[in-house]
């Protein structure tokens, strides 16, 4: 009894010491800010510097077509970008995981990672150099005679999509590759041995095995795309109509923090909703997907 009591006290003290920094960080930097934002979003201005609780900021969002159109557009474009990323990444992951052996495999995976160690700003800048009116692609097309005059590729939805897919690629390729690597060749061989062909083996054996990675990859890509700011602004210019840009405008340009907070809460909600839905549908745990 004595020893038990003795050993328990320092343990508790140690636990408290470990817990304190985490709680401080979590509460002050993660939870409280979000709650403050929620609080501010619920305040409506009735006179200069006088505020009252109400939903007017949210009502404003639903009554002003520009706002919810932007919101919807952001969500839809994010979904398209996620699907495109998946379609483009899957063959590459498969190629790296299953068709390559030894050195080539490691090399290609590192090659996949390199662009993502480089700042997003630099990558987007690279696309601008390539795609603008005086850019490399336009010049090249003129040079080979495909077109008479210079072409502006920037500031279109397709360009925004290209940028979004590019930025998201790693977050799809890496989980897919590692999951496909864990699929033992004998499953694929068994599928063929029992008379299956490429298509049936793909849909019945490879895809079910990769499903967890597909879901977590999609969730992460969707989240990142939805919250992206740089790519739509730089590649889409004025016509980008991205929801994070609206938030920035409300806060920094218009100084309407109440409205901006409401937008922030909305963006956070849809992002969490999609994550939650994805996890629910695939019956996976949040902790697992994130790590």
């Amino acid at each position: 009894m004595m020893t038990k009591g003795k050993s328990k006290t320092p343990l508790k003290l140690g636990l408290l010491l470990l817990l304190c920094p985490l709680l401080l960080w979590l509460v002050l930097l993660v939870i409280l800010p979000q709650l403050t934002m929620l609080n501010i979003s619920l305040q409506e201005r009735i006179a200069p510097r006088i505020y009252e609780y109400g939903f007017s900021n949210y009502i404003e969002f639903f009554t002003e077509p520009l706002y919810w159109n932007t919101f919807l557009r952001t969500a839809v474009m994010s979904i398209i970008a996620t699907v495109l990323t998946l379609i483009i990444a899957f063959p590459i992951s498969y190629y790296i995981a299953k068709m390559l052996r030894g050195r080539a495999k490691g090399l290609l995976l590192v090659l996949c990672l390199i662009p993502f160690w480089v700042s997003e700003l630099v990558r987007t800048y690279g696309w601008m150099i390539l795609l603008r009116e005086s850019g490399v692609v336009s010049s090249f097309l003129q040079y080979i005679g495909m077109t008479e005059g210079p072409i502006e590729f920037l500031y279109t939805d397709a360009t925004i999509m290209l940028g979004l897919v590019y930025s998201s690629m790693l977050f799809m390729v890496v989980p897919l590759t590692s999951t496909l690597e864990s699929l033992d060749d004998s499953y694929i061989e068994a599928g063929y041995d029992l008379g299956g062909n490429g298509l049936s083996v793909f849909w019945q054996i490879i895809v079910p095995h990769a499903k967890p990675a597909i879901v977590s990859g999609c969730i992460v890509v969707f989240m990142l795309t939805l919250g992206n700011y740089l790519t739509p602004i730089l590649l889409g210019g004025k016509s980008s109509l991205w929801f994070t840009e609206q938030i920035f405008t409300q806060f920094i340009t218009r100084f309407n923090w109440q409205q901006g907070s409401a937008f922030g809460v909305l963006l956070l909600s849809i992002s969490s909703l999609i994550v939650w839905l994805g996890l629910k549908l695939s019956r996976q745990s949040f902790s697992k997907v994130m790590s």
């Binding site: 004998s186 499953y187 061989e189």
Partner: peptide, 17 residues
């Protein structure tokens, strides 16, 4: 997939899904 032979794999390769 066209051979009239089938194989029982070392680790069986029963499809877990």
């Amino acid at each position: 997939n066209k051979r009239p032979v089938n194989m029982v794999f070392q680790h069986l390769a029963l499809f877990p899904n």
